[in-house]
């Protein structure tokens, strides 16, 4: 069963198309990652799934948990917006009680206790929100989104601004929710997180869908055109090498995108001319690289984005 079914929806703000003819299906129990540059339409799409925005009249339809969006707000959806919103003067426990109640929850005491312990925030239960650090407030906001055990959890940039420890805590909580049967949709700019956590990845660029599928299928589409290499003694630039389209310098590691059809042994031989090699790996492009290929300045100079449907139809 699909938890979200979006069919050719468009959303326009003052003449600007924020979302343009978008289609998407999110299977039940999956973790679906939304990626895309800032202003590409991620949050607008999430807000439409949340029924905060409605698609343009006459455009397609959205079914969430089997219901059309033109209905009442749904207590089965938990939502963490991109910009956090908590009443600063409220105490943590009161705030969580309030959010539990507006999501239709009556028996919330044990859930509040469980989540505060889970997030290591029990000592802060009677403190005001304004006294919490940014990371703590973010965890409280997360609890408020999931406390009512929603079937669908929508998290807009849940990991941004978190330190690695808090990031782990939150990631484990998300995975626990999935284990308990919730479907998770989250947007992120962290490609590493998306690669590691998501069953499906969806990329939107300038309002159009440009990627949609499992990580493997996406990478397969691009083939094994990437070489990661470590040359400890080499300080020069590798972009002058033949059959190399692009070099991304990560400092210790260099990532080379090679011209399709090039023999990797030929590249290896050329690299050996430049110095001692301690690591040589022929691989598929990373999600980061795919992202940059689609949305980076280089791609934009060449051509406007092509929607995935258009590619498939072609």
């Amino acid at each position: 069963m699909n938890v979200v079914e979006i069919d050719h929806i468009t959303k326009t703000f003052s003449g600007h198309r924020a979302v343009d003819g978008l289609s998407l299906t999110v299977p039940e129990g999956s973790i679906y990652g939304f990626i895309g540059p800032n202003g590409s339409g991620k949050s607008t799409t999430l807000r439409m799934i949340m029924r905060i925005y409605y698609p343009d009249t006459g455009s397609g339809k959205i079914l969430v948990l089997g219901q059309h969006v033109h209905g009442a707000a749904n207590d089965r959806i938990g939502y963490l917006p991109e910009e956090r919103g908590l009443y600063k003067k409220m105490k943590v426990r009161d705030a969580l009680r309030f959010y539990a109640e507006i999501q239709g929850m009556r028996d919330y005491k044990s859930a509040i206790r469980h989540w505060l312990e889970r997030m290591e925030l029990s000592d802060w239960a009677d403190k005001k929100i304004e006294t919490l650090s940014k990371g703590m407030a973010q965890k409280i906001q997360f609890i408020s989104a999931v406390i009512a055990k929603p079937s669908l959890v929508i998290l807009d940039e849940p990991f941004s601004g978190l330190d690695p420890v808090n990031m782990d805590v939150l990631r484990e909580a998300v995975l626990e929710l999935r284990r308990e049967g919730s479907t998770i949709i989250f947007s992120t700019h962290d490609m590493g997180v998306a690669e590691k956590m998501c069953d499906y990845i969806f990329m939107i660029f300038k309002g159009k869908k440009v990627l949609d599928g499992t990580l493997d299928t996406l990478k397969d589409e691009y083939g094994q055109d990437t070489i990661r290499v470590i040359l400890p003694d080499h300080n020069g630039n590798l972009s002058d090498m033949e059959h190399v389209e692009k070099v991304t310098d990560f400092g210790r590691t260099q990532e080379l995108r090679i011209v399709p059809g090039t023999d990797s042994q030929q590249i290896l031989a050329a690299l050996m001319q430049r110095g001692r090699i301690t690591h040589f790996e022929l691989t598929r492009p990373s999600l980061h690289d795919i992202f940059v290929r689609i949305a980076g300045p280089e791609a934009q100079q060449v051509q406007p984005p092509v929607a995935l449907e258009e590619v498939h139809h072609a």
Binding site: I52, Y79, P81, G85, Y87, Y99, I102
Partner: peptide, 16 residues
Amino acid sequence: EEKMQRISEVLLGSVP
């Protein structure tokens, strides 16, 4: 205040 601090966005997820 709720609008600028995006509290209303959270609330609108659950309340019409």
